[in-house]
């Protein structure tokens, strides 16, 4: 197992380099970074040239990339459009987004798996059809629609929550945005769990467990659920990465100053450092989450052994 983890960590290096290079190139294609610095007005050609050589933008792209990566490895992610260090920006943005992601994941696990188990065990009954229809609606409606409706109803009309989250973004204020962020994944988790439970419920070992005279709840929790959760955990694991980067829409709607918000600002101002820096960290998180899923896989299913 140890060797496997090390091998996987080493495999992350080329993926990391490839991903960052790709992002670096894409941001470069987006347009002239200097143009954004002068605000609305056209830049003075002399100033632009000076800025260009100051930032090293007159050098070839591969050289720019090499310089950037050199800085990254010494912990210098550059400065953002407002003169703040990107690392400082990360320091405030990531804790908020992590909090939001945790809220979303907890919703996925508790609501998604519970609904999945209930519907899986009652396949074809009204509860099952009802939940199935509901998940279909949730999946087909885009997050920004769900988010805006929730904000409008709960925040503006009924005043249950405040429509925008404060800068500090405490956990309490993130519950509704977290639910919005989780909604689509939650529906997928429900469907995945349902199928898995329904399939395993007919398996021979569940029949054996019943024939052993085990109480119903023990059959479900010890025998059925453990086997059924393997694909669900894979999904939730990969979803951690997706939720952290994909919170842009939700963070915009509820004005949460997290990773999505900063990324959006970075793209808007064509600030290479911010975008590449944040995305780099997101790539690492995504890779680590995947590794965690694979390790967890072996823990849950003893038939899988990594050498």
């Amino acid at each position: 197992m140890g060797r496997y983890v090390i091998r996987r960590l080493l495999q992350m290096i080329p993926v990391f380099i490839g991903a960052t290079l790709l992002i670096f190139l894409m941001v470069n294609v987006m347009g002239d970074p200097i143009a954004g610095l002068c605000g609305e007005r056209q830049c003075d050609p002399a100033t632009a040239a000076q800025l260009r050589s100051q930032f090293g933008l007159d050098k070839p792209v591969w050289q720019q990339y090499a310089t950037y990566m050199g800085h990254v490895f010494t912990g210098d992610f550059g400065t953002a459009f407002n003169g703040q260090k990107v690392t400082e920006l990360m320091g405030t943005a990531f804790p908020i987004t992590i909090r939001l992601t945790i809220v979303a994941i907890v919703f996925e696990i508790i609501i998604g798996i519970t609904l999945g188990v209930i519907t899986g065990l009652r396949r074809g009954r009204p509860v099952d059809s009802g939940v199935l229809l509901l998940t279909l609606v949730v999946i087909s409606v885009p997050t920004f629609v769900t988010g805006l409706i929730v904000q409008l109803l709960l925040g503006v009309k009924w005043n249950v929550i405040s429509p925008s989250v404060s800068t500090a973004a405490p956990l309490g204020e993130l519950i509704v945005p977290g639910l919005v962020l989780a909604s689509v994944s939650l529906a997928y988790v429900t469907r995945l769990t349902r199928t898995s439970i329904a399939e395993n419920n007919r398996s021979d070992y569940v029949r054996t467990a019943i024939a052993k005279g085990l109480p119903r709840h023990r059959v479900i929790t010890r025998h059925l659920l453990r086997n059924s959760l393997i694909p669900v955990i894979t999904f939730i694991g990969t979803d951690i990465g997706a939720l952290m980067g994909g919170a842009i829409v939700t963070e915009r709607i509820f004005n949460i100053h997290g990773v999505g918000y900063q990324l959006y600002q970075g793209i808007l101002r064509q600030n290479t450092q911010t975008v590449v820096g944040f995305v780099t960290i997101l790539v690492i998180i995504f890779l680590l989450a995947n590794l965690l899923v694979d390790v967890l896989y072996a823990v849950l299913d003893p038939r899988i052994r990594y050498a």
Partner: peptide
């Protein structure tokens, strides 16, 4: 009353010792 099943591989839970 206890029962012995035909296919022991699928009748035993694969993830429990």
């Amino acid at each position: 009353i206890a029962m012995i099943f035909q296919d022991a591989l699928s009748s035993l839970n694969p993830v429990l010792s």
